[in-house]
């Protein structure tokens, strides 16, 4: 399958390792990864902050970059960006776009998937041949859980990882407090939510807290770093990309 990879602006610029891992994983599974170089940002931050006119060119660019019929599916290593493409691009296109954009958005939306959806629903694989001999806890992230309804898919992928010690995160479905510009506009409330999330992460004794969204991980990881926690954050793709022959060097990576 020819899979279009949308790196997301955050992943491309600040967390490239998660996107690399996505590309490596899909290649290892025998698929061809296409990276349209004109891609930038999905516009989620704009829409969630109340701006719907400004992201029109971003919505159009996404539809153009990935509308190519030779791309069978589009993958986003981010639940919230996938959620934006699926739920918000249509709203923006209908309100401030044109008929062509509405049509383009609908076509690309139908083949857009978050990573765990692509693996489990489209590629029909749960054991991706990964090896990760560490204690891991999984934070489901709100938009993966409640907007995309990925359900157990990421956990099914993680349970199939060789050597993993997967421990349940208490109150896993609670928001970590990120919420995009919410973390800036309501920084104190956000911090209070983060403090509870970090307490639950600490209770698991996990070496790694993982999730399917670099933005939530940036938030949780930023907090864990501040309190000098032994737990670090890693994107789900980085765990799934690790193998016996090419293992993830956890100790070295922990800062």
């Amino acid at each position: 399958m020819r899979i279009g990879l949308f790196a997301t602006c955050l992943g491309d610029t600040l967390f490239p390792d998660a996107v690399k891992a996505t590309a490596v994983l899909l290649t290892r599974l025998g698929h061809q990864v296409a990276f349209p170089p004109g891609q930038t940002c999905c516009g989620q931050m704009h829409v969630n902050t109340g701006y719907q006119r400004e992201p029109v060119p971003l919505v159009r660019n996404f539809a153009e970059q990935f509308g190519d019929p030779s791309i069978d599916a589009v993958v986003l290593p981010s639940g919230s960006c996938a959620g934006s493409v699926r739920h918000q691009h249509g709203i923006v296109a209908e309100r401030y776009g044109d008929a062509g954009l509405v049509d383009g958005v609908a076509k690309v939306r139908a083949k857009t998937y978050e990573l765990s959806e692509l693996l489990v629903d489209v590629l029909e694989v749960t054991d991706v041949g990964a090896y990760f001999p560490h204690r891991v806890t999984y934070h489901p992230t709100c938009h993966s859980l409640r907007m995309l309804r990925v359900g157990e898919k990421p956990l099914r992928l993680l349970r199939a990882v060789e050597g993993i010690d997967l421990v349940e995160l208490p109150e896993a479905d609670a928001c970590c407090g990120f919420g995009g510009t919410f973390a800036l506009k309501n920084a104190e409330t956000s911090s209070a939510m983060l403090a509870d999330k970090m307490r639950h992460v600490a209770e698991t004794g996990a070496a790694v807290c993982t999730a399917g969204d670099s933005s939530c991980l940036m938030h949780i990881g930023g907090g864990l770093s501040r309190i000098a926690s032994d737990t670090r954050t890693l994107h789900l793709a980085q765990i799934l990309a690790a193998t016996r022959t090419s293992p993830y060097a956890l100790a070295e990576a922990a800062r």
Binding site: F15, K185, S190, L194, G221, G222, R226
Partner: peptide
Amino acid sequence: GWSATRDVSEPP
């Protein structure tokens, strides 16, 4: 408000 309780990793 962010950096009151959270670090940011330097750009890669």
